[in-house]
């Protein structure tokens, strides 16, 4: 594994995490999640212990993808944000760097206006961090798995799917 590359990813990741925690604090959100377009969690802030994260991430990505296609059908390029209003909690979803989904889950005490302002501010920073990561991913090979990894993973697969 290329340690330098990994450290550099970790630095960007740390900045992203801090940014999310700040957003969560400032909006008094229950939690904030960053999800990729394929429905996999990148990272989160806030107490997500009661949340079924894989299901949430998958549905958010599917929701966003379905809505983008709806936009397309009416001649819009994209709906950049989605808002689902509930009685006790609501969800505000927006797209970062055209690749990553930011979902903020907030209680009724927080106003939508505040969420909009804070998300806009956080998005600008997050976008920068992600663009750094994407540039690195494109320009450098980052080795993660070797023969030993594959051998061990295959043996785990054999015992899991018996």
């Amino acid at each position: 594994m290329e340690t330098d590359n990994v450290n550099s990813f970790e630095r960007e990741y740390q900045k992203i995490k801090e940014n999310l925690e700040k957003l969560c604090r400032e909006t008094k959100a229950s939690y904030v999640l960053l999800i990729d377009k394929a429905g996999q969690l990148i990272t989160s802030a806030g107490d997500t212990s009661s949340l079924d994260i894989p299901s949430f991430a998958t549905l958010s990505a599917a929701d966003f993808a379905a809505t983008s296609n709806l936009a397309d059908l009416i001649g819009e390029h994209d709906f950049s944000t989605l808002f689902h209003q509930g009685k006790a909690r609501s969800i505000y979803v927006s797209l970062i760097a055209n690749q990553v989904i930011l979902a903020v889950i907030f209680p009724r005490e927080t106003t939508l206006g505040l969420i909009r302002i804070k998300v806009k501010k956080a998005s600008a920073d997050l976008e920068r961090f992600f663009e750094n990561i994407f540039t690195q991913l494109e320009s450098e090979y980052v080795g993660t798995v070797d023969q030993d990894f594959i051998k061990e993973a295959e043996s785990e697969l054999d015992s899991l799917f018996e």
Binding site: G39, Q40, P54, V145, D148, E152, A153, E156, L160
Partner: peptide, 21 residues
């Protein structure tokens, strides 16, 4: 209608948690 989804965890392999969705 849309999809079925099942996350399966392979466990820890060489320090990495491997998940199949």
């Amino acid at each position: 209608l849309f999809f079925d989804f099942l996350p399966v965890n392979l466990g820890r392999v060489k320090g990495f948690y491997v998940h199949f969705h």
